[in-house]
Design a protein around this nucleic acid. Structure first.
Lengths: 344, 344
DNA sequence: ATGAAAGCGCTAACAA
DNA sequence: TTGTTAGCGCTTTCAT
């Protein structure tokens, strides 16, 4: 292989192609090259010359070096509790797309909602000099987010709120009300609730709104009709099974997210009950799995939340203080909700 | 606020706490501090002293600077086609956990399986000086991965294979055979196929194995019983609907992934057919949604694939050449497969 | 407009 | 063991 040290432009032979390399190629100083490269290729004669030379020697900017010098990494950190929660995955996907469109990259971490992990990973990301943080695993007790805020790094919450920290969220309380109102309007009176962890404002808000709306209608939730569960299919399945083991005297159930609802549907079928006909089911989020299941649900608007969170953080990096945005939910009625068999 | 420039140890007042700061604090040179900090806090007297001083001044290593100096970023890049594909999310989650346990961080990008995006993002990650790449969006036509390989950066494929590039995958061909054998053994003769994109070795392999096993039994797939679809719920739903619009003369269907199978189940129900009883359904991956649906499926072992990919890349970073590992699939029989109504 | 020089924070050679 | 020095590749004064 002919490896001329003066022209290391075959990809395999490349070694440290820097601004200096480009400069030598076109007889200019590295600093001039740096400036010219920031201009468009057709801005002026030198810019054109420099861009051409850069291409010829296969120059690739070293963003690590640039980060070091400018103190801006153009990397954003994002904390999720688990990527396998489809809602969190949607957020990450939207955030990554939006950031990429603005020249930023994304460092994601799973925290499994464990506070020691949350803090450790924030520290790690700060070591990496991320420009800002998107927090999708916030806890209502503000300790964690308060701490992040105290670090002085730009941040914004997504999906879940915590205290008065800037957050892009859905109106979960309102969504819970919509679910309750819908079932009550259909004539249901004994309605079960599958709720999630209290530390997540999403599940807590939905459950609270649901209970409040029922109470407003004089239908306060009977004690035995509430189960806590983890918000994925198996969790919803098991919780519904436990509930049914205790009583079958119910005609509807609201699960605070779609996966739990789908699990519940499975449990109903196993128990010989037909979802929709024997027991109405309402979920939350309107994931794409909801439609083929005919699941009545509440639109969670997580794509928009992801986009907004990314844009909001980008804004914060430009000095605009982030504000909280609350998106209005909407009920999506499908086949799993019908009036009770023996409507009053 | 009292901001003593000599002791900027209140978090709010912190500004550039470097090794020098720590050194000044304990009367040692920055390089000595650097070395001491790499030792355990209880290794020796100076180590203890330095660790204490570092804690006092709130020192946090600057990994950007370290990367620049060492030419190792301790960041790994990962390419997925979409995070909202649960299988990809599982891979990312496992990879992130495994990398974190070894002090590495993860930069994820969505490529939507578009080759221009794949290349652009690989370049971006290289600019960021990632130590290696995990490719979960490989295409069977090797062009993309061949190109990555030519860059000389350590890499390993996950889930999908391409040419002879090192990959951690399931035996998709074998899995397709298992599905076909199971349905044929139950007595099904007219079996439909919902296949995915040909560029993914996963769907292509499963479909090929399925067809091969049927052929081996003299049950070659009738032309009208095959539909291509996008591998998520809506895609499976629509494909099944198209298939049913053409003919109802089938007693079983194999979808190359669970989400498509679930969509197909929805379409069957809409058409007044009972999944399992009127038309048997087999999926692929054994996602957690499969169980509450009673979906018969093939275990895809994506958690293991993610772990292996991460470990394999980590090994590659230590100089061990990665090897291809193929995991054996297993059939998981549930309620959506029964013998045909009028078994021959 | 371009060049020279400095320096971001770290680590690795080398020297003491 | 500890200190000194140099330099990773870039951007940004400052001079020219």
């Amino acid at each position: 292989m002919t490896t001329d040290p003066d022209r290391p432009d075959t990809p395999a032979a490349r070694r440290a192609v820097t601004l200096r390399t480009v400069g030598e190629r076109c007889g200019l100083h590295a600093s001039t090259v740096s400036r010219a490269l920031r201009r468009a290729a057709d801005a002026d004669a030198t810019a054109a010359r420099v861009h051409a030379a850069a291409r010829e020697v296969g120059y690739q900017p070293d963003m690590v070096a640039a980060s070091m010098r400018t103190r801006r990494s153009r990397v954003v950190g994002m904390l999720v509790h688990a990527l396998t929660d489809v809602v969190q995955a949607i957020l990450v996907e939207e955030v990554e797309d939006e950031l990429a469109a603005h020249g930023y990259q994304l460092l994601v971490v799973n925290t499994h909602d464990r506070s020691a992990v949350q803090r450790a990973k924030v520290e790690l990301m700060r070591s990496r000099r991320v420009d800002g943080l998107i927090i999708a695993d916030g806890h209502v007790d503000g300790a964690y987010v308060d701490w992040v805020a105290s670090l002085g790094i730009p941040y914004v919450l997504a999906l879940r709120r915590a205290g008065d920290h800037p957050a892009m969220v859905g109106d979960d309380m309102r969504g819970g009300e919509l679910a309750a109102a819908h079932l009550a309007d259909l004539g249901h009176r004994r309605i079960g609730l599958l709720q999630g962890p209290a530390y997540a404002s999403t599940s807590a808000g939905r459950a609270a709104g649901f209970r409040a709306e029922l109470a407003r209608r004089g239908l306060a939730l009977p004690g035995g009709l509430c189960e806590s569960c983890e918000l994925f299919a198996r969790g919803g399945h098991d919780a519904m099974a436990r509930l049914l083991a205790r009583t079958r005297d119910l005609t509807a159930v609201f699960a605070v997210n779609d996966m739990a609802a789908i699990g519940a549907i499975g449990a109903l079928r196993s128990a010989g009950l037909r979802p929709g006909w024997d027991v109405a089911v309402v979920g939350y989020n309107d994931l794409s799995v909801a439609a083929p299941f005919g699941l009545t649900t509440v639109r969670g608007r997580q794509q928009e939340i992801g986009r907004l969170a990314a844009r909001s953080l980008l804004g914060a990096l430009d000095g605009e203080p982030p504000r909280t945005v609350v998106l209005e939910p909407a009920l999506v009625v499908r086949e799993t909700t019908r009036p009770p068999r023996a409507a009053p």
